[in-house]
Protein backbone atom coordinates (compact mmCIF):
# COMPACT_ATOMS: atom_id res chain seq x y z
CA UNK A 1 0.00 0.00 0.00
CA UNK A 2 1.43 3.35 -1.05
CA UNK A 3 1.79 6.29 1.27
CA UNK A 4 -1.06 8.07 -0.59
CA UNK A 5 -3.56 5.32 0.17
CA UNK A 6 -2.43 5.07 3.77
CA UNK A 7 -3.15 8.76 4.38
CA UNK A 8 -6.24 8.91 2.15
CA UNK A 9 -7.83 5.91 3.85
CA UNK A 10 -6.99 7.08 7.38
CA UNK A 11 -8.45 10.48 6.48
CA UNK A 12 -11.64 8.88 5.18
CA UNK A 13 -11.80 6.65 8.27
CA UNK A 14 -11.50 9.65 10.61
CA UNK A 15 -14.19 11.47 8.61
CA UNK A 16 -16.62 8.54 8.89
CA UNK A 17 -15.88 7.93 12.60
CA UNK A 18 -16.30 11.62 13.35
CA UNK A 19 -19.65 11.79 11.57
CA UNK A 20 -20.87 8.62 13.29
CA UNK A 21 -19.93 10.05 16.68
CA UNK A 22 -21.70 13.30 15.79
CA UNK A 23 -24.84 11.37 14.97
CA UNK A 24 -24.83 9.08 18.01
CA UNK A 25 -23.34 11.16 20.84
CA UNK A 26 -25.94 13.10 22.79
CA UNK A 27 -24.05 16.06 24.26
CA UNK A 28 -23.46 19.07 22.03
CA UNK A 29 -19.82 19.49 23.14
CA UNK A 30 -19.03 15.90 22.23
CA UNK A 31 -20.68 16.39 18.86
CA UNK A 32 -18.56 19.50 18.25
CA UNK A 33 -15.34 17.65 19.10
CA UNK A 34 -16.41 14.74 16.88
CA UNK A 35 -16.95 17.17 13.99
CA UNK A 36 -13.44 18.53 14.53
CA UNK A 37 -12.10 15.00 14.23
CA UNK A 38 -14.13 14.47 11.05
CA UNK A 39 -12.70 17.76 9.77
CA UNK A 40 -9.13 16.60 10.47
CA UNK A 41 -9.95 13.51 8.42
CA UNK A 42 -11.02 15.65 5.47
CA UNK A 43 -7.86 17.77 5.74
CA UNK A 44 -5.69 14.66 5.93
CA UNK A 45 -7.37 13.40 2.76
CA UNK A 46 -6.64 16.71 1.02
CA UNK A 47 -3.00 16.67 2.10
CA UNK A 48 -2.69 13.08 0.87
CA UNK A 49 -4.03 14.22 -2.52
CA UNK A 50 -1.60 17.14 -2.58
CA UNK A 51 1.32 14.81 -1.82
CA UNK A 52 0.76 12.73 -4.94
CA UNK A 53 2.86 15.15 -7.01
CA UNK A 54 6.32 16.53 -6.35
CA UNK A 55 6.34 19.39 -5.40
CA UNK A 56 3.01 19.02 -3.57
CA UNK A 57 -0.05 20.65 -5.19
CA UNK A 58 -0.30 24.17 -3.67
CA UNK A 59 -4.01 24.54 -4.60
CA UNK A 60 -4.97 21.72 -2.26
CA UNK A 61 -2.79 23.10 0.51
CA UNK A 62 -4.46 26.49 0.12
CA UNK A 63 -7.83 24.75 0.32
CA UNK A 64 -6.85 23.01 3.55
CA UNK A 65 -5.79 26.35 5.02
CA UNK A 66 -9.16 27.89 4.10
CA UNK A 67 -10.90 24.82 5.47
CA UNK A 68 -9.05 25.15 8.77
CA UNK A 69 -10.01 28.83 9.05
CA UNK A 70 -13.68 27.97 8.47
CA UNK A 71 -13.42 25.08 10.91
CA UNK A 72 -11.89 27.27 13.62
CA UNK A 73 -14.64 29.87 13.12
CA UNK A 74 -17.40 27.27 13.36
CA UNK A 75 -15.80 25.59 16.39
CA UNK A 76 -15.35 28.93 18.16
CA UNK A 77 -18.95 29.90 17.53
CA UNK A 78 -20.13 26.45 18.59
CA UNK A 79 -18.10 26.55 21.81
CA UNK A 80 -19.51 29.99 22.62
CA UNK A 81 -23.09 28.81 22.07
CA UNK A 82 -22.55 25.71 24.18
CA UNK A 83 -21.05 27.77 27.01
CA UNK A 84 -24.02 30.16 26.84
CA UNK A 85 -26.34 27.16 27.17
CA UNK A 86 -24.49 25.92 30.24
CA UNK A 87 -24.16 29.21 32.10
CA UNK A 88 -27.35 31.11 31.38
CA UNK A 89 -30.62 30.19 32.98
CA UNK A 90 -32.83 31.29 30.11
CA UNK A 91 -33.85 34.69 28.92
CA UNK A 92 -36.60 36.81 27.44
CA UNK A 93 -39.22 36.01 24.81
CA UNK A 94 -38.41 34.08 21.67
Amino acid sequence: MSLFWLFALSGSGLFILGLLATAFRTRALEKLIALNIAGSGVFLFFVALAGRSDPPDPVLQAMVLTGIVVSVALTGLGALLIRRQMTEGGGDDG
Partner: peptide, 29 residues
Protein backbone atom coordinates in the same frame (compact mmCIF):
# COMPACT_ATOMS: atom_id res chain seq x y z
CA UNK B 1 -32.75 36.01 20.51
CA UNK B 2 -30.62 34.97 23.56
CA UNK B 3 -33.32 32.77 25.10
CA UNK B 4 -32.28 29.29 26.23
CA UNK B 5 -34.38 27.63 23.50
CA UNK B 6 -32.91 29.91 20.83
CA UNK B 7 -29.33 29.15 21.90
CA UNK B 8 -30.02 25.41 21.91
CA UNK B 9 -31.67 25.62 18.48
CA UNK B 10 -28.76 27.68 17.13
CA UNK B 11 -26.28 25.08 18.47
CA UNK B 12 -28.12 22.29 16.65
CA UNK B 13 -28.25 24.45 13.52
CA UNK B 14 -24.49 24.97 13.77
CA UNK B 15 -23.75 21.26 14.23
CA UNK B 16 -25.94 20.35 11.24
CA UNK B 17 -24.39 22.98 8.99
CA UNK B 18 -20.85 22.06 10.15
CA UNK B 19 -21.37 18.37 9.34
CA UNK B 20 -22.85 19.31 5.97
CA UNK B 21 -19.94 21.58 5.08
CA UNK B 22 -17.40 18.84 5.86
CA UNK B 23 -19.28 16.38 3.61
CA UNK B 24 -19.41 18.99 0.86
CA UNK B 25 -15.69 19.74 1.21
CA UNK B 26 -14.83 16.04 1.06
CA UNK B 27 -16.82 15.76 -2.18
CA UNK B 28 -14.99 18.75 -3.66
CA UNK B 29 -11.65 17.18 -2.71
Amino acid sequence: AQSREAIRAATNYLLATYAASLAYLFGVG
